[in-house]
Computed example of a mutant assay.
Amino acid sequence: MDSIFGWLMLIVGALLLVVEALTPGFFVAVPATILIVMGLLVVLAPGLLTFPWGLIIFALVTIVVSIATILFYRRLAPGHKPIVTGEDSLAGKTGEVIRDVVPGSIDGKVKVDEQIWSATSAEKIEAGQRVRVIRAEGVHIIVCRLTDVTEGGECKK
């Protein structure tokens, strides 16, 4: 009976690892690894579950395997720092208008460095045009056509 339970734990653990591989997110990697290790223990030492200290051994192994798995996956896939974009870092960058930019409105949209910003301008700029960011104000940017930028980085009047 222990052997069947051990094999069942191995199979479920392996299936969970397959799920983790298909939809990565680290949600089932730890339980999958624990099930595989516990399944191996039960298959290799069938009387372990009936042994008086069996539950304590299982608890200790679970803790050790959990910590080892978490450390392994942290090393395998280190975290990434979030992209931080401040007002100063946007000025002077170029982008592409993806929704018409209209004076007096921040409904226009401009893609700058893979990020989409609400934008306004002194004149209407159609979608598809290349623009230069003059400055950022809060959550939107002020832009002008790339062809209208002076040597000093300002828009031609």
Rank of each mutant, 00 (worst) to 15 (best):
Q129W: 10
V43Q: 02
G95D: 04
E87D: 08
E87Y: 00
A21F: 14
I63F: 14
A91Y: 04
R130P: 03
T85A: 11
P82D: 10
T69M: 01
A77N: 12
A119I: 05
A127C: 05
V18R: 04
V97Y: 11
K109M: 14
E96H: 10
D107L: 15
L49T: 09
T23K: 11
L49K: 00
V18K: 07
I56N: 06
V139E: 11
W7H: 08
R75Y: 13
P31A: 12
L60E: 04
F72Y: 09
C144A: 12
K124A: 09
T85Y: 00
E126K: 15
V43T: 12
L48E: 00
A45I: 12
G153S: 15
D2M: 05
A32T: 02
I116T: 13
P46M: 02
A32F: 12
V30L: 13
T62S: 13
P52I: 03
K157I: 03
K81H: 15
D113F: 00
H80T: 12
P52N: 01
P52L: 12
A77W: 14
W7Y: 13
P78F: 12
V37E: 01
G13H: 02
H140P: 02
V101H: 09
S105L: 11
L41A: 08
G54T: 06
C155K: 05
T94P: 01
E96G: 01
I83T: 07
T69D: 04
K93F: 03
G95V: 08
L90C: 02
S121Y: 03
A29C: 13
A45N: 07
F58W: 03
L41I: 06
G13S: 03
G86I: 00
L17M: 11
E126Y: 05
K157S: 14
S66K: 01
L40W: 06
I134S: 05
D113N: 10
G79Q: 11
V131M: 06
A21Y: 08
R130T: 09
S66T: 12
G104D: 08
V30Q: 10
P52Y: 07
C144H: 06
S118D: 15
E87Q: 09
P52C: 04
I98H: 10
V61T: 07
L49A: 15
L41V: 02
I57F: 09
K81R: 15
V133M: 02
G138V: 11
I134L: 14
T94K: 14
F26P: 05
G104C: 04
V131K: 10
V64G: 00
V102E: 09
E123P: 00
L146Y: 13
L76D: 06
P46F: 04
L16C: 09
V42W: 04
L10G: 11
I125H: 07
V12I: 14
D107E: 13
V65T: 08
G152N: 11
R75M: 14
E20G: 06
R99C: 01
M1L: 11
L60D: 02
T150I: 06
V149I: 15
L90D: 01
L146T: 11
Q115N: 11
V131A: 04
A77L: 12
K124M: 10
A119F: 08
P24E: 14
K157Q: 15
V97R: 03
V131W: 05
V133P: 04
F58Y: 07
G153I: 10
F27Y: 12
D2W: 08
I106A: 14
A127I: 05
I67K: 10
V19M: 10
A127F: 10
D100T: 15
R99I: 09
T23V: 15
G95R: 08
